[in-house]
Amino acid sequence: MAVIEASELRRTYRTTTGTIRRRRVEVEAVRGISFEVAEGELFGLLGPNGAGKTTTIKMLITLLVPTSGSARVLGHDVVREAGEVRRRVGYVFGGERGVYERLSALDNLRYFAELYGVPGREQKTRIAELLDLVGLTGREKERVEGYSRGMRQRLHIARGLLHDPPVLFLDEPTIGLDPVGARELRAMIATLAESGKTILLTTHYMFEADSLCDRIAVIAKGKIVAEGTPQQLKGGVAEGWVVEIEVYGIEDVVLDRLRAVPGVRAVAVEERDQAQLVVVQTDSGQELTHALLSRMDGAAVGRVSSREPTLEDAYVALVGES
């Protein structure tokens, strides 16, 4: 049996805009998402900002009611059996908020231990273990307001693990951390996965998903556009070829013309210092370079190169197509 099962999850938000004439606007954040996560698996939801990753997680941890569809965690329905689900999952989100700043890490953990129903006699040893695990031992009596971002994030992790949940939801846990802090946190996540926890991780960092996850679902505009192991996702574009063309100013019409070239899978533009880099993913090979360049009249073209595709290209292609 899968530990996490999401079936056709949908979520729309109603907001109002305008101050004088208020209009109701419906935003579809998640548009029919289904996936399963097996026991002990580290599953990644990879997608750009605003793709619906956080909304999906919030539905799974009972903070949001799905507009339609259903989801179960360890066999418990996230709407009808919210209490059962809450007892069994840990939730950690990235960023500095979500802890009581004026109090110490120890105070915070004691308080949340009570909220998570950790029995009194276990609290002390459990908190000491967790402080050790996240490397805050020795600093636990200091007020959180003096902590670095990395320390706060580790405190979040400790809080999420207080009741030793079999399932962990990590929502962009490395966001805003410096490279060293992020690497330490990834190592910690890998350790947790090895200890047998089922983990659902969201991220918009490619390499993070690549290095940590057993399986990845790429999510864009509220839908899953691809799912598989990192190798399988890379494989999806492995036979192709990537042509990179440096240009100085380019118009959308030209991009559309490029997209129309037979054999072109996706065209994306990356901003560089003073130029743009047009990244074209193609089916076959270099012979397209000429065809591409011939359709770029009017644009000032700089360096042109070609290379084999990476996971990042796979991701860009998937997200770009959706």
Partner: peptide
């Protein structure tokens, strides 16, 4: 802390 508190059992 509202979300974290509500997500608790």
């Amino acid at each position: 802390t509202l979300e974290v508190s509500i997500a608790a059992p």
